[in-house]
């Protein structure tokens, strides 16, 4: 894990975790990402915004190996070790590199308890196999004990200790989001990708969520990439913002810059005079 770097994000481009170069992703006739290039620096909180269908989730899926883009490269550089290409790698292998994610609509293991959900994340890198488990060998028991402790720690971190034994599908919406974050953190990631974590939560929960995201970065030292529609949350948490529209990066900069950017405002409200195709081409 990276060192905690509270305060200002490093501006140097040397320490890039994810480097996305000229990525294009098509589905038949639909182009969800066209020639997207961006980089995620170690230790920062970067937010990706954009209207519906802009390609944000598609980008996440490319970063985690769910989709394979037709063109371009995506390089992940772990803190210790060599840079590797994510393109064409299986999602579980990408996770093992140190990339964890949450989903736009929550995807918990709904018949399991909160505790078990998080524990699955924690355990995924352990070594107990079928035979060890059947015989309950000492290593199995030790690993079980370790993952119990770590799970408890994570539940405490996201504030779900009281709900540890509840079935996850009975949790309220906001808690589900935090459960997914805890599960993702359980895999010990260097980068956490959050896909609209505030969707469906109430204002009070949003405040807590912002706090949690900041803690993920400062206390655990995990780099955060955040997709969010809630501008208040984005502005309060993100250090840098990238705006996507029709699969293209139309702007990037600090929150204050983005708020003033006319291109972004037009993208959200619809460009007044040109039709959409021309509008994006011109950008």
């Amino acid at each position: 894990m990276t060192d905690a770097t509270p305060g200002i994000a490093p501006a140097t481009t040397d320490d890039v975790v994810f480097s996305v170069q000229h990525v294009t992703l098509r589905f038949g006739g639909v182009t969800s990402l066209s020639d997207v290039s961006l980089s995620l620096n170690r230790g920062e909180i970067l937010s990706i915004i954009g209207p519906n269908g802009a390609g944000k989730t598609s980008l996440f899926n490319c970063l985690t190996g769910v989709y394979t883009p037709q063109e371009g490269s995506i390089i992940f550089t772990p803190e210790h070790g060599h840079a590797v290409s994510v393109v064409g790698r299986k999602p579980y292998k990408v996770n093992r590199l140190g990339v964890a994610r949450t989903f736009q609509t929550s995807r918990m293991f709904s018949a399991l308890t909160t505790f078990e959900n998080v524990k699955i994340g924690v355990e995924s890198k352990q070594h107990t196999g079928a035979i060890g488990a059947m015989l309950r060998l000492p290593r199995t028991r030790r690993e079980e004990h370790e993952s119990d402790l770590k799970t408890l720690e994570l539940l405490k971190f996201v504030g779900l200790t009281k709900r540890a034994n509840e079935i996850s599908s009975s949790l309220p919406y906001g808690d589900r989001r935090r459960l997914e974050i805890a599960r993702a953190l359980g895999t010990n990631p260097e980068v956490l990708l959050l896909d609209e974590p505030a969707a469906g939560t109430n204002p009070a929960e949003k405040v807590e969520l912002a706090e949690l995201i900041r803690n993920v970065r400062t206390q655990l030292g995990v780099t955060v990439l955040l997709i969010e529609h809630d501008m208040k949350l984005v502005m309060s948490v993100a250090e840098r913002i990238i705006v996507l529209n029709f699969g293209q990066v139309i702007a990037q900069g600090s929150p204050a810059e983005i708020q003033r950017n006319t291109v972004v405002i037009n993208a959200y409200l619809g460009a007044p005079d040109s039709d959409e195709d021309n509008g994006t081409e011109a950008l």
Binding site: T64, V66, K90, P91, Y92, N95, R96, A100, R101, F103, R107, M108, F109, S110, A111, L112, E116, I120, G121, S124, K125, R183, A184, G186, T187
Partner: peptide, 15 residues
Amino acid sequence: TAIREDEVAADSVGI
């Protein structure tokens, strides 16, 4: 159990 319930999510936690 994780795979049975949601393979995509199971993949995402490294299973």
